[in-house]
Nucleic acid binder design. Sequence first.
DNA 1: CACCTCCTTCACAGACCTGTGTACTCTAGT
DNA 2: ACTAGAGTACACAGGTCTGTGAAGGAGGTG
Lengths: 195, 195
Amino acid sequence: MPTKDEVTLTPGARRILDVAATLFYERGIHAVGVDTIAAESGVTKRTLYDRFGSKDALVLAYLAERDRRWRDRLDAALDAAPSDPLSRVDAVFEVLAQWTADSGRGCSFVNATAEIPDPDHPARRLVREEKRWLRERFEWILADGSVPDASARAATLLLLHEGAFVVLSAGQDPDAVPAARRAARALVQEAVESP
Amino acid sequence: MPTKDEVTLTPGARRILDVAATLFYERGIHAVGVDTIAAESGVTKRTLYDRFGSKDALVLAYLAERDRRWRDRLDAALDAAPSDPLSRVDAVFEVLAQWTADSGRGCSFVNATAEIPDPDHPARRLVREEKRWLRERFEWILADGSVPDASARAATLLLLHEGAFVVLSAGQDPDAVPAARRAARALVQEAVESP
DNA sequence: CACCTCCTTCACAGACCTGTGTACTCTAGT
DNA sequence: ACTAGAGTACACAGGTCTGTGAAGGAGGTG
């Protein structure tokens, strides 16, 4: 069963959102105009505004869909992984490895933060929520595996995860994600083996 | 003795660069036009173009100056700190804590990366260089303190450092930098105490 | 048949963008 | 007194930006 969003989107709107997602991610939100999006979607600007109302709303739809897809992917990976904390944490970083394999432009949420100064903007709320969600996922993994100091260690895992994304994109270091994965594994192992 | 850049800048150019730095950082590079920068500097657009040549060059000057100031500050802190690796690593995160105290909009280099897609753009080269420099600083600190696996551990420290910046700005978590600092200290301590 | 949704074409508004051309003034140094 | 550098004033070019208005076509459903 497809998600509600996907059902309610008309074919034209679906194309618009797909094109917008690609262009916003690859060129930046401010750098892409609605004219370009409409033209690349084979649609007129009128249709774009009829479907989404504003560029701002289109930006929000782009981020919300990306957020949903990423969470679904991560939850699926966690469901498929063994239930020990080491396997689960490793699964999160495996998803990151796959995700970044075809996303060379960094984290779309971090990029959106860079382009949207207002912290009360709906897109910024979405970004905060996404980071908070991942942090809680880590915390749940550790607590469920009876790892001590789950909260503090989850915070560290989040730092490694986000650090990997930014060192990969801004620093252009291809080893960033593997390095974060190794550090995360070491952190969990050390925590499990400690008294 | 002032640096060469500061000497060669005319008073007008100095004001332009200061204003541009503030506006680029707070509102984003694309979102700020040269008209605004000129007006806020109490200078005409003509002067801006006579001094800097293009908006692109002004952007580069902004990032280069910020880079220089940050490195100077970090080097000064490292000089002032005791020479053991724990104190030195802690000093780096202390600088981060101070730096982020009045920089709520994240890392300007990461933000610039989000807004400039072309990896060959001079600004992007500068960003890469900055991240590489910090990584090497960490590596030097560890190796100089005879910490084993200095290279791998330096990579982890860089991840924590960059992660803190992004979790603070995108995730709006005020504990991000202290958490990274604690994790970094723990990492160094564990490495020093290990056989 | 009428009706509705989706979408089209096209013109237009009004603002903002980077960048330039021309001609002028003020100030400091030699 | 002369000159060079720094800056001012201001118009203008040529584009792009978001967003709207008016009118109509294609295709399915009652």
